[in-house]
Each structure stands twice: as C-alpha cells, then as structure tokens.
C-alpha cells in the first residue's frame, strides 16, 4: 500500500518494508545515480528534542538526493518557546518544505501533525512512542547480516520507554521472527505494544535475564537503560549492570551472533566487543543514510516536489 506519512511501524506491511529496503540496497550500490533525483526538494527538520544521528542522517540523506534542508533549530530559539502549538508550527513549516521530519516529546505528536498538513510527515521519535525510520535501518542491518526470516532476536534494555524497541517489535511481526524481550520487570514492554504483538500473532517471550536465551539468538539488540528511570543511583547501578554485555558475556553466544544498538551507547556494550565480528552497531548507524534516502524516495516519489 502506498503510504503518505511514516508515523508508526504498525502501518508498514511486509511489502512496504521490502520496497524501502530493496531501494536502500540499490542506493547503497550506486549512490551517485541518485545525487540529482530530488534536486528541488526541501526537507524540514523539526526537532523538539535533541538529536544527533537521526537529524544528521536525514540531513545527509536529502542532500545526497540533491535536496536541501530547512531546520527549525532548537526549541529554545524558536516560536515554540512563545507557546505556539505544534499544529500551528507544522502548518507554517509545510509552506517551506516538501516533507517534515518531526521529533517531539509527546506520544502521538507525529500522528497529530500529519492530520494538519498535506506534505509527508516522518516520525523521528514521539516521546516513548515510536521511531519507525530507525526500524527501517535496523531491519536493513538485520537483513544484510542474518536475514529477516527464521530469525531469533533478543531485544534488551529499556523496553518500556524505548521507542526504537516498540517500532522494531511491531515491524518484526511481518516476518518469521521469534522475539525475546529481556529487561528488568519495571522496564518491560508496555501493554499497548504487547497488545499489538498479540494481535499480530507474533512469537514473543519475555525474560528478566539474558543468560538462558543468549545461546539461541541470531541477533541481540541492546538499548540503553537510563539513569532517570530509577529512583536512586544505587538501584540504577544494580539493575543496569545486569543488562550490560562484554566479550566475556558473549562467550556463551553463537559465533554468528550479530550485536546491534541504536546508539548512542554509554556502557551497555563494552568497547572490547567493538572490533569483533559480533559488532554491527556502527554499520547499523551508517545504514541510516541509504535507508533514509530510500524512505524519502518512497514518500516523495508520489508528491510534487518544489511546489
């Protein structure tokens, strides 16, 4: 199905995902062929929360397609500070750009924004909701490394607030993937995501420890557990330590295990994993550019750019 916006991973069918990943592979093979494809396109970057890689990779992606960006800047320097609603902001920005990339601290922000504008809206993170463009590059990385069917994946860390986790879990229901969720009890997958997985008939298991499930995993997707999720420092140290990995931890894993992380990482993955064949997180992050180019192509190919 043709999509006008990218708001959540649940909206994506297997065919949608494969179309974007195939296009990303094409772009990856011959990026130069795409360098003037969207010569008149302007992409608006509206980041109401800080971002480094998502914002930079969208910026690079549109430029490698021949387009440019217009950047709202930080919330501190914008009219939002004066109390402007998001609905007004996006309606103004729509006049400057062919598509809007939006990151916002409230869940549902991108969905609402899409109701107020005609240009494509890409959800680049809505609170603890979704982050579907990250998921596309995650899926691309998984496909390149181990394939998306017959997959056994462990998703570990902050599953409650981790928006990359929610989108990835939803998207994986399109594939023959067994999903293992590994987290402290207090950070387990939220009810609404479990509901989606259940509705989709996904094969899901939840664990509080990595050990028992590690040997059967093809992919281990690690996310950061943030300090502010815990009432005090000692509690955080105690819990977070159980969800950090190093080369020693991985001695129990399959030799073919692929370790991923949406980055930034702090201490969830020890540096001794970096140089090993397990580590796919930098490759994953580099995939952000061709995958976002493919996503932009997917959304812009059916709108009139530069109007």
């Amino acid at each position: 199905m043709r999509q006008d916006h990218l708001i959540t991973a649940t909206q994506l069918s297997r065919a949608d995902i494969e179309a974007v990943l195939d296009r990303a592979a094409e772009i990856d093979d011959d990026p130069a062929a795409w360098s003037e494809r969207y010569g008149r396109a302007v992409l608006a970057l509206c980041f109401f929360e800080p971002s480094t890689r998502t914002k930079m990779s969208f910026d690079t992606a549109i430029k490698r397609l021949g387009g440019t960006t217009t950047d709202m800047g930080t919330v501190e320097s914008s009219s939002v500070k004066k109390g402007e609603s998001l609905a007004d902001t996006v309606r103004v920005v729509e006049g400057y750009a062919d598509a809007i990339v939006l990151r916002h601290p409230s869940e549902g922000a991108a969905k609402m924004a899409a109701e107020f504008v005609d240009v494509p809206v890409i959800n680049a993170g809505d609170g603890a909701g979704q982050h579907p463009s990250q998921t596309l590059l995650d899926l691309y990385t998984i496909r390149e490394n181990v394939g998306l069917d017959g997959l056994s994946i462990g998703i570990m860390g902050d599953l409650k607030y981790g928006r990359t986790v929610h989108s990835l879990a939803d998207a994986l229901t399109n594939f023959d993937a067994r999903q293992h969720f590994i987290s402290p009890e207090s950070l387990r997958l939220p009810r609404n995501v479990r509901f989606d997985l259940h509705q989709a008939g996904a094969q899901v298991r939840e664990h509080t420890a990595l050990e028992s499930v590690l040997p059967e995993l093809d992919v281990l997707y690690v996310t950061r557990i943030q300090r502010e999720r815990f009432p005090d420092e000692t509690e955080y140290q105690k819990v977070a330590g159980q969800y950090q990995i190093d080369l020693e931890t991985l001695s129990a894993a399959s030799d073919d295990l692929t370790v991923m992380h949406p980055l930034p990482r702090v201490d969830e993955i020890a540096p001794d994993v970096d140089g090993t064949p397990y580590a796919a997180y930098f490759e994953q992050s580099h995939n952000g550019v061709p995958v976002r180019m493919a996503l932009l192509d997917y959304l812009l190919s059916n709108v009139e750019v530069g109007q």
């Binding site: 109390g83 609603s85 998001l86 409230s106 549902g108 969905k111």
Partner: peptide
C-alpha cells in the same frame, strides 16, 4: 504525555 493532553 499524550499529544491530546497538550495544548493542541
């Protein structure tokens, strides 16, 4: 934290 509880 839902957008419907913001001033929108």
């Amino acid at each position: 934290n839902c957008i419907t509880n913001g001033n929108e």
